[in-house]
Design a protein around this nucleic acid. Structure first.
Lengths: 347, 347
DNA sequence: ATAAAAATGAGGTACGTACGTCAAAAATGC
DNA sequence: GCATTTTTGACGTACGTACCTCATTTTTAT
């Protein structure tokens, strides 16, 4: 059974004939250009539905005068996850370029609302169709997003959202659900109950706070024998995480599990090893990085919960196509998956 | 920092100039047409690398006289996973069609090597570029794949492979790794040890056997306190699975976990409920279907291990592009992910 | 050296849409 | 009803590659 009728493709010419208008009018409707009466536009829409016209993206992209151009504004330095995001921008960008979607990468000082705002203001609407930003929830950023949107740029928030702003799409995971997933696993890992040590970069980071909140809610409601301690805040840094978690384990030598919602896993692994608890307590971490992969393979880390940078960049790509070319230009958006990796299903 | 040099695109014209040959020769090399001396082809390849020419897939697909046409030959009926695969063929097919890749769906009698062989023989090489089949490891199928390949068709095996045949690609998961993943989870769920009941459709099915083998190897090497019983074979059917697992639990009322590598989860849930064990034993199942989703939400099933039909169809799509248009026509193949779902990270 | 075969060049058309220009028709305000 | 604005039509070019034909050059076999 063929999914579509035989060979013939339905083109704009067929559509023009079916709607009883000229090609020029079809073009105006399809590309949302001005100068079409609502009644005429409705006739075209009706004809589109009636004859099942689908814009040929292949020809559409070819005929477009210029590529879709997207700026990625990412924080630089410290965070290994951001480095992976940046790598994914290059990797996926190479694929997108073959389909005439070009990514530019701009790295700014970390957690600096002014730098982000400046970078947004510097975007030329004649060069760029839009930008993807890792948002910081500050008034200056809201204002810059509003200004950019006013210039016709489509702003997409990535990983960290900016609710209530003029941003046109958000790409990222549900961090509370990620925390609940960690809690469900940890609870099942510890049927006899016990103490769990929470570790975070900073409770000032929204995603960290949301994960901890999700973790707590599941554990308290479904695993009453388990108690949750902390969080220990290590600023996502190696040394600080090492020192503070080691000290914490000194005070609580009877912990049965560790959940780290942030980075700094290398320091945590070292602290666990030093405390003689490596492999003896269950350990759930986030993001596949050098330390977490090593931890999985050595058996110190049991589970890593992952938001795939590649998935996210691909989702930004699709969102940009939808925003610039219309809703049919890419498959409808679906939430970014929360992936669960053990040593055994690591790619 | 821009990922690629400014605006100008490198076209076949630039390539012809750089290689010192005509457009016709470029075309012959790019599309593997005959009539080019190896020395000339080498010069072109060198120029491609030197100036960084990338074929514009957008224009390439547009200029192709005909679409890429792919037949999906899937077993019909019984298996709910196959139904989901078929749905994914339609869903992803709608997206692929916009990029001039057309899927046709052909459903044949289940586990019938002759029907599969006949369906392959019926494929016209002038109409189709290739086919994706859920392979059955029988000589008749090997021969039919060889004949189809001889006619110029690209055969891709899906879910179930046909090693040693003329098939050009395989799309599916590593079932031993899936079993190991299940074993790792189950072992951590049962730190105090205990008996695990294995359930399968049939040990005659290669994927089922591989999963069980992977499960056993992990449990025996890493969780010696856990013992593995079974497998109980339920033919992937509701009633048979219900009856046999219920009887088995009568003989072993002290099991602490269940791992079902196949279908029939509705019957298993019913048996567990009747035995008063629902929610009291850890339960790992495969594939997101009606019964497994319900089981996750009700708390009877703890974890579902998943191969995504959509991922697999998309991978077939990419493989077909690579086989028909060349290696650059799609991102390089990557293994199908083994996904782990709990109630909390269910989409 | 000559004939045959193979390799290469030159140039065109086609794919379906985007986007421009200019004129003609229709709707609108007064 | 007239002038003005808005809407619509007609038509052409461009995008980058595929694929075709035919002439011409180069290589290979004899």
């Amino acid at each position: 059974m063929a999914i579509e009728p035989a060979g013939g493709r339905v083109t704009v010419h067929d559509l023009a004939r079916a709607a009883g208008v000229s090609l020029a009018t079809i073009d105006r409707v399809l590309n949302a250009r001005p100068g079409v009466r609502p009644a005429t536009a409705a006739r075209v829409e009706e004809a589109i539905a009636r004859i099942g016209f689908k814009r040929d993206m292949t020809a559409s992209m070819l005929a477009r005068a210029r590529d879709i151009r997207l700026a990625f504004i990412l924080p630089e330095g410290t965070n290994q996850f951001m480095t992976k995001l940046a790598e994914a921008v290059e990797t996926i960008g190479a694929q997108a370029r073959a389909e005439r979607v070009v990514f530019d990468l701009d790295r700014i000082r970390s957690i600096d609302a002014q730098a982000l705002s400046d970078a947004l203001d510097a975007l030329d609407a004649d060069t760029y169709d839009g930008a993807a930003i890792v948002a910081i929830d500050k008034p200056a950023v809201h204002a810059a997003v509003a200004r950019a949107t006013g210039r016709g740029l489509k702003i997409i928030t990535l990983v960290s959202d900016l609710p209530g702003s003029a941003r046109r799409a958000f790409v990222g995971i549900d961090n509370a659900a990620a925390g609940r997933t960690a809690g469900s696993l940890m609870g099942r890992f510890c049927p006899q109950g016990g103490k769990i040590m929470l570790v975070a970069g900073s409770m000032g980071l929204i995603d960290h706070a949301e994960r901890i909140s999700g973790f707590r809610s599941i554990v308290s409601s479904e695993f009453p024998a388990v108690s949750v301690l902390g969080p220990v805040e290590g600023q996502d840094e190696f040394t600080l995480t090492y020192e503070r978690t080691l000290a914490f384990m000194g005070e609580h030598p009877d912990i049965v599990g560790v959940y780290n919602v942030g980075a700094g896993n290398a320091g945590l692994v070292m602290a666990l090893t030093e405390a003689g608890l490596a492999g003896k307590v269950r350990f759930v971490a986030h993001e596949l990085t050098g330390p977490t992969c090593a931890g999985l393979n050595s058996g110190v880390i049991d589970v890593v919960i992952v938001q795939s940078p590649e998935d996210e960049i691909r989702a930004v790509w699709a969102a940009a196509r939808r925003l610039v070319l219309g809703p049919d230009a890419a498959p409808p958006e679906s939430p970014i998956e929360i992936k669960v990796f053990l040593r055994d299903n690591l790619r």
